[in-house]
Computed example of a mutant assay.
Amino acid sequence: MKIVIASDSFKGSLNSLEVAKAIESGIKKVYPRADIIKFPIADGGEGTVQAFISSIGGELVTTNVTGPLGTKVTATYGILTDKKTAVIEMAAAAGITLVPQDQLNPLITTTYGVGELIRHALDRGCTEFIIGLGGSATNDGGAGLAQALGYKLLDADDQEIAFGGGSLQNLRRIDATNVDHRIFKANFIVASDVTNPLYGPNGATYIYGPQKGATPKMLNELDNGLKNFAKIIYRDLKKDIHNLPAAGAAGGLGGGLFAFVNATLKRGIDIIIEKANLKKYLHDADYVITGEGKIDSQTINGKVPVGVAKIAKEYNVPVIALAGYVDDKSFLTHEAGIDAIFSIINYPITVEQAMEPTTAKMFLTKNAEEIFRLIKLITDKHEDE
Rank of each mutant, 00 (worst) to 15 (best):
M1K: 08
M1R: 08
K11V: 07
L17N: 11
I23R: 00
K29V: 00
V30H: 10
P32M: 12
A42S: 15
A42W: 02
A51S: 15
G57W: 03
G57P: 12
N64H: 12
G67A: 13
L69Q: 07
T74E: 14
A75F: 03
Y77K: 02
L80M: 13
T85G: 15
A92N: 02
I96S: 11
V99R: 01
P100S: 05
G115S: 13
E116T: 10
E116Q: 15
H120Y: 14
R124M: 14
C126A: 10
F129W: 01
G135A: 04
D140S: 02
A143N: 04
G150Q: 10
D155N: 12
E160W: 00
A162W: 01
L168P: 08
L168H: 12
I174N: 01
A176F: 05
T177K: 13
F184W: 05
A186F: 08
V190G: 09
G200R: 00
G203E: 01
I207K: 08
I207N: 02
G209T: 00
G209C: 08
G209A: 07
M218A: 12
G225T: 02
G225P: 12
N228K: 11
N228H: 08
L237M: 13
L237H: 02
L244D: 06
G248N: 05
T264R: 13
T264K: 15
E274N: 10
D286P: 06
Y287S: 07
G293Q: 07
I295A: 05
G302S: 03
K313M: 08
N316V: 06
V317E: 04
L322G: 11
D328N: 15
D328A: 11
F331W: 09
L332P: 02
T333C: 15
A336M: 09
I341T: 08
S343T: 14
T350M: 14
E356H: 15
T358E: 15
M362W: 09
T365L: 00
A368T: 00
I371M: 13
L374H: 06
T379M: 10
K381F: 11
E385K: 09
